[in-house]
Write a protein that binds this DNA or RNA. Sequence first.
DNA 1: GTGGTCTAGACCACC
DNA 2: GTGGTCTAGACCACA
Lengths: 122, 122, 122, 122
Amino acid sequence: MTWNDHKAIYLQIVDRVVEDILRGTLKTGDRALSVRDLAAEVQVNPNTVVRSYGLLEQEGILYNQRGLGFFIAENASAKARDFKKKEFIESTLPDVFKTIKLLGISMEELNLLYQQFENLKP
Amino acid sequence: MTWNDHKAIYLQIVDRVVEDILRGTLKTGDRALSVRDLAAEVQVNPNTVVRSYGLLEQEGILYNQRGLGFFIAENASAKARDFKKKEFIESTLPDVFKTIKLLGISMEELNLLYQQFENLKP
Amino acid sequence: MTWNDHKAIYLQIVDRVVEDILRGTLKTGDRALSVRDLAAEVQVNPNTVVRSYGLLEQEGILYNQRGLGFFIAENASAKARDFKKKEFIESTLPDVFKTIKLLGISMEELNLLYQQFENLKP
Amino acid sequence: MTWNDHKAIYLQIVDRVVEDILRGTLKTGDRALSVRDLAAEVQVNPNTVVRSYGLLEQEGILYNQRGLGFFIAENASAKARDFKKKEFIESTLPDVFKTIKLLGISMEELNLLYQQFENLKP
DNA sequence: GTGGTCTAGACCACC
DNA sequence: GTGGTCTAGACCACA
């Protein structure tokens, strides 16, 4: 896994799990990787993963069965979407729109940039 | 001034100055508020403003005349726009697009959100 | 059976047995559910029940006949009451009283809450 | 400070702050001890205090001013009372009432025990 | 095996 | 100076 310097690693791990749920890689009832295993996989201290899982549990996206591990909760997909969307609409978008306006970028231009972005990956 | 928790205060001050320049409130040759005055106005430690002005000077948007204060540089407007645009296209947009795709938000929806945002302020 | 997150499961199983004895559901000489059966009933790892029965044996509330299972001991009722009461007066009550005082809850209010609790179940 | 083995230290630190607020030792606008100072005072690792303060911030009882420290929030007293009361009524009381009933302790008896507790300290 | 907690110590950005 | 994050490693209770 590759880290972004400007965001705490434990939050990036949260994002990873949320995205796995949104993509359907993880489904309700599935067992999440154990703290130790995920920590090993992403080469991070187990404590860091504990923190990520703690946040996800608090959001109702994961739940813990003592001694067994963490599992994907009921409606995790909807909750994950809400979680992500809330963050996006409340903290990312206003800034984006403000900047767009300030720079005089039109929605058409933005659309274009989006298509460029789309064509970039594949 | 109201602070956003997710961004360093000194960067938010930078943003404020940049925006004032892009809006034309501050023009080439104008004297920027003194460190002290701006610090007082936004209720912040003067050191913080020093840091903001330092960054703006480094970007060639402000220049310092010793004993007199900071002034808006030649072509500050263009430089400010470049500074902002670079940051926006390189670090903000990719993330935005990725999230849009993940959440299944269409450009139409985004357009709608933009109009909501527009109608919010005035 | 429904678990309380703040108490170890094996202790909640102990509570269950103690309560069955105090209510008279289990009497001296009765055979307690086998480890396996109880474990299946409450959906728990048999090891966990073993631990609960171990504690109850240690308290003299159950005894084990090898090959036959666990049985309710002589005077189990009195022992169970003592066990429960000791725990209650020594560890639970002081904390309760301290909190009551801190929150300014009067004994009248507590009485009210008790009646609410009573009316809740049936 | 003296620790209770059955409760996480970071939660006992939370309790300490909450109680200080309820007793009026800490009032809205006051600065809480810095993480390092409180850690030194209660002889605990700073990380542990960070965790306690984090929880209190999440509950809206403390707030953080970057670079300056933690402060007691507006209405901290009410919030602290709610926080404590909720925990008490939802997780402590039901258990207490259930046990009282099981042991056949009447509210009169409980009252008596309370008076004994009151006379104990001074 | 699982997660939960704590320590010691480090580095960082920020004020 | 402040808090925020991360690591390394330990110990514990629990299943």
